[in-house]
């Protein structure tokens, strides 16, 4: 009996791993929420630097380039890895509304909008032109804001 249970558990773990193609994926929903938070903070940190440059509060064109690279890196992560099923409000500090999974095509579309916007920001960062960076930042910000408006609980 006991052996069977252990075998079943081991099999379940194997299936869980086989099902997820993305590397370094935590199967624990609490850890998944934390990982998402880390990714989002990375996006936010990038945007903060870009905003500082646009507002002329310190960050340099080089900082904007680094920020654009960080945002691009996050944008290439598979949305199914960022928002695995079972990580809605109620799990840890999750602020993701259940509507995100109910409207997955829309949510996935928002996430996929991030990459071209980030590329635009990278191009603008290369130019070092404040107005161009401001416009590109607005395009990235639009993606953040639209998705948060629909699928994030508050703030």
């Amino acid at each position: 009996m006991r052996t069977l249970t252990i075998l079943a558990a081991a099999a379940a773990v194997c299936i869980a791993h086989a099902g997820s193609m993305a590397p370094a994926l935590a199967a624990d929903p609490l850890a998944q929420v934390k990982e998402r938070e880390t990714l989002m903070k990375k996006l936010g940190g990038g945007m903060k630097a870009v905003g500082g440059f646009v507002k002329n509060e310190g960050p340099t064109a080089a900082d904007v380039q680094a920020a654009a690279a960080a945002i691009t890196e996050v944008s290439t992560v598979d949305p199914r890895t960022v928002f695995p099923e079972g990580t809605a409000i109620g799990v840890g500090d999750s602020e993701a509304k259940p509507e995100l999974w109910q409207n997955w095509t829309t949510a996935e579309g928002y996430w996929n909008d991030l990459k071209p916007a980030a590329e635009q920001l990278t191009a603008a960062a290369g130019s070092g032109d404040r107005a161009q960076v401001a416009r590109a930042m607005q395009a990235v910000g639009k993606v953040c804001q639209t998705c948060h408006e629909d699928f994030r609980l508050k703030k």
Binding site: M40, G44, M47
Partner: peptide
């Protein structure tokens, strides 16, 4: 554009 000073973006009703 909805961005807070820490780079986070407003959602929900404020969005």
């Amino acid at each position: 554009i909805g961005m807070m000073p820490d780079g986070d973006f407003a959602g929900g009703s404020m969005g």
